[in-house]
């Protein structure tokens, strides 16, 4: 349930039971990786190391607002229209 909240998923009760069991099984199967003694092994976060990639400092045209309007769930006055952002009773 807590995990569902962290992941921003409004799970149903039956989903919580179902996923709790399945995630337990998956983690059980994955656990074997902790058997590998790897204290002195550096971690790999990226397979082909590249650092500080810059592009030429040249202004390029951005996208038009109308382009975003087409795919937006709600749009008003050239902006994305969103629900209230404070979690208090309206």
């Amino acid at each position: 349930m807590h995990l569902g909240r962290l992941a921003r998923l409004e799970l149903t009760e039956s989903e919580v039971d179902h996923y709790t069991e399945q995630l337990g099984q998956i983690l059980g199967a994955i656990e074997a990786i902790s058997d590998v003694a790897a204290d002195d092994i550096p971690p790999t976060s990226h397979p082909i190391p590249v650092v500080n990639v810059y592009r030429e400092d040249v202004a390029l045209p951005g996208l038009d607002r109308e382009d975003f309007a087409v795919g937006a769930p709600a749009w008003e006055d050239d902006r994305f229209l969103v629900p209230r952002i404070l979690d208090e009773p309206a």
């Binding site: 990786i33 902790s34 590998v36 790897a38 092994i41 971690p43 790999t44 397979p47």
Partner: peptide, 8 residues
């Protein structure tokens, strides 16, 4: 730990 396995 998974990232270290990745190195191995």
């Amino acid at each position: 730990q998974a990232q270290k396995i990745r190195t191995l």
